[in-house]
Design a protein around this nucleic acid. Structure first.
Lengths: 209, 209, 209, 209
DNA sequence: GATGAATGAGCCTTCATTCAT
DNA sequence: CATGAATGAAGGCTCATTCAT
C-alpha cells in the first residue's frame, strides 16, 4: 500500500510534468518555453524535471510521444466507424466530421505547430508524428475504402489515392478556414465541410456513377 | 553620384539583411536564430541590423512581407493560366502542377514552418500569410472556376467550395508525401498527383457528367 | 553473528566510501568531484554517503586523515632506517631514495594537490598534512642526524637545519623533474638524484672535511 | 586621441578582468570562483568577460599567462644579479634572498596552488608554469653557476645539478616554514635561510675546499 | 541504516539590445 | 549611418543535501 502510494506519486509527477510540458510547449513554443515554467506548472522543482527526462529535448520528445499516441487513437477510432453496412453517405459524413474534429482539436494544432517549428532542429520528430500517426491513419482509411470497393459500394482504382483525396477534400480547407487553428470552427460549419467534401468524393467515387 | 552610390549601398545592405534574415530564420527557426548570425550572413555588423529594423520581431515581419509577396506572385501566376479556352483537363493539370510546385518550394515550406512556429507569439503574421496570400489565391482560383462554369465547362454550385476542393485534392497529400517538406517530390510524382487530383475533380465537377 | 556481519558490512561500506572518495577527489579535485560519483564508485547510494559523513567537507577531511596517516607511516619507516651504524653514504642514499619514492608516490602527489587546492577554503587541512606529517618527518630526520653528529659521523651545528637541507637536496628538484607528478620518475633517475643529493650533503656535512 | 581613449578603455577593461580573475581564482579556487564575482571585482558586466575571453577556462589560462610572465621576469632579474665579480658569498646570499622572496610572493603561492588544483583538468597549464618559468629560471641559474666555475670560483661537475641543489637548499624548507604560504616569512628569517643555504652550498661547491 | 526521489540554490553561458566612436 | 564594445536579463543544467520509505 505504502509502496503503491510512493510509486503512484512518482508516476503522478512524471505525468504531471508531461502534461505541463506539452501545455507550455504548445503555448510558447519549444525555444521560448522555460523549463522552470514547465516545472512550476507541473508543481515540481526544476531539478525534478531533469531527474525524469534528462534534458529539455528529451522532454519534448516524450511529450510528442504521448500526444501522438492520443491523436492516433482518436483518429483510428474515427476511421474505424467506416463499415460496409449502412448508408454510405451518412457514414462517410460522420467519419468525415469526426476526422475534422480530430484535426481541429487544439492539441492537434499544437502538435503540428510544434512539429513545424522544430523540424529543422529535431528532424526525427517527423517519424513520431507522420510515421506513427498520419501514415497509419491514411493506411487504415485506405483499407476501409478498399473494403467498400470490394463490397461494390465504391469504385476506386487505387484505394490509397482515394483515401488521400477524401482526406484532402475534408481537411484541405481547414488551415485557411480556422486561421491555422486560431479560430474555432463552429459545429455546423464542420458538418457542412464534411457534407460538401463527402458529396464531391461520392460524385467522383460512388459506384455506378 | 556618390549620393546615389551611397543610397544604393544602403539599399543593398537592407536587402542583404532581409535575405540573410529569411535564410537564417528558415534554417534555424525564429527563436534559435541569432541576430549576430544574421548579421554575419549579411556581412554587416550586428548594430547595423538594429539601425535598419529596430528589433528582431520587426525583422521577422519584414522577412515575412517580402517572402509572402513573392509567394503570392508565383501562386497568382499559376492560377492565372486557367482560361476558358483550350483543353480543360490539360489546363487544369498544368495549373495543378504549378500550384504543387509553389506549395513545395523550399521557401514556401519555410514560410509555413515559421508561421506555425511563431503563431502563438505573433498572431498577426497570419494576416500576412493567409490574408495576403492564401485567401487571395483561393479567391482567384474560385474566380477562374466560376468563369469556367459560366462558360459551361464546369458545373459547381459554389465556386469557392470547388476551389477549396481542387486545392485539397492537389495539395492535401503533399505534407505526408514530402514529409513536411523534408523530402523532395520528384517531378514525375508531382505530375501524377496533379493528374490524379484533376481526374477526381473533373469526375465530380465536369459539366455534363 | 548476523549482527557481526551487519557491523562488518557497515564498516566495509564506510571504508569503501573513504577509498572511493579519495580516488575521486584525487582524480577530479574536490570541487569537481561529485558526491554521486563517489557513491557510485563505492557502490552505495548517495544518501548513504551522507548517513556516514554528514557532508562533503567532512568526507574530504576523513580522506585526508586516512591518507595522511599512511603517508606518515611510510615516511617514518624510511627515516628510521638511518642508524649510527653501517656505511654512512650508503645508508643516506638508501634513506634518500626511500624518501624520494614516498614523495613521488601517486597518493602523495594527490594529497599535496588537494591540500593546495583547498587550502584557501579549509585552512585546517594544513594541520593534518604539515602538522601531522611533514613536521614529524622532519623532526625525526633531525633526530637521526643529531645522533649521527653525536656519533662523530656528521658535523652540523643545527640538526633541524641539516635535515631541511638534506630534504631540500633530495626532494627539491622533484617537482620540476616529475612535472608536478605528471611524469613517472624512473628508478635509475631516482637513485641518481639520491646519490647526488647525498653527495652534496656529505661534502657539506661529513665530519672531518 | 579619441581612438586612443577608446582603445585604452578596452585595454584597461581587459587588464582589469585579468587582474580580477587572478585575484578571485587565487582567493577561491578555479571551480569555486564565480564569473560574476570576477566581473564584479573588475567592474564590468559578466558578459564583457565572455566577450573578451570566451569562457572561464580561457580566462584561467590567460591569467596564468600573465602571472607566469611576471613571475619569470622577477626570477630572472634575481638570478641575473649573479656575476663573476664581487664577493661570492655575499652575492649568493643576495640572490638567494631574492629567490626566496620571489618564491614566497603571494602571487607565486597562488600560482602554484592553482596549478596543483587544476592540473588534473588542464594538464597544459604545466607547460605555462614549468616550461615557461621554472625551467628557464633553473637553466639561467645553471648558466651563471657554470660561468662561476669557469672563473674558478666554484667547482661543480654538472652546473644544472648544482643549480638544483642551490635551489633546493634555498627553497626546500619554505613550504613547511611558511605553512604553504599561509604564514608570512619575516625578513630576518628569509635572510637566515638564504645565509644557511648558501653556507651549505659553498661548503659543498666552493672552489679550493 | 540504506535507498530513490525530490529539492533549491547557483553557475556558466547566451543573446537581444544599446552606446560611444 | 556603420561599427565594436558593453550590458542585463534569462535560461539550461548541475549538485550538495534532505525526506519518506
Amino acid at each position: 500500500m505504502s509502496g503503491t502510494r510512493a510509486a503512484r506519486g512518482r508516476i503522478d509527477k512524471r505525468a504531471a510534468i508531461l502534461d505541463a510540458a506539452y501545455t507550455v510547449f504548445a503555448r510558447e513554443g519549444y525555444a521560448q518555453a522555460g523549463v522552470d515554467v514547465i516545472a512550476a506548472e507541473a508543481g515540481v522543482a526544476k531539478a525534478t524535471v531533469y531527474n525524469h527526462f534528462g534534458d529539455k529535448e528529451t522532454l519534448l520528445r516524450a511529450s510528442f510521444d504521448a500526444v501522438a499516441d492520443e491523436a492516433l487513437a482518436r483518429n483510428m477510432a474515427a476511421v474505424e466507424r467506416l463499415s460496409t453496412q449502412g448508408d454510405l453517405r451518412t457514414m462517410l459524413e460522420e467519419v468525415g466530421y469526426a476526422l475534422i474534429r480530430c484535426y481541429c482539436d487544439e492539441q492537434s494544432w499544437a502538435l503540428r505547430r510544434l512539429l513545424a517549428a522544430e523540424l529543422a532542429q529535431f528532424p526525427d520528430l517527423l517519424d513520431i508524428v507522420q510515421g506513427r500517426v498520419a501514415d497509419k491513419v491514411m493506411e487504415s482509411l485506405a483499407d476501409r475504402l478498399a473494403r467498400l470497393c470490394l463490397a461494390g459500394r465504391l469504385r476506386a482504382a487505387d484505394p490509397l489515392l482515394a483515401a488521400e483525396h477524401l482526406a484532402g477534400l475534408l481537411l484541405g480547407s481547414l488551415d485557411r478556414r480556422s486561421r491555422s487553428g486560431t479560430r474555432e470552427i463552429p459545429d455546423m460549419e464542420a458538418r457542412e465541410i464534411a457534407a460538401a467534401g463527402v458529396d464531391t468524393f461520392l460524385r467522383a467515387f460512388a459506384a455506378g456513377s
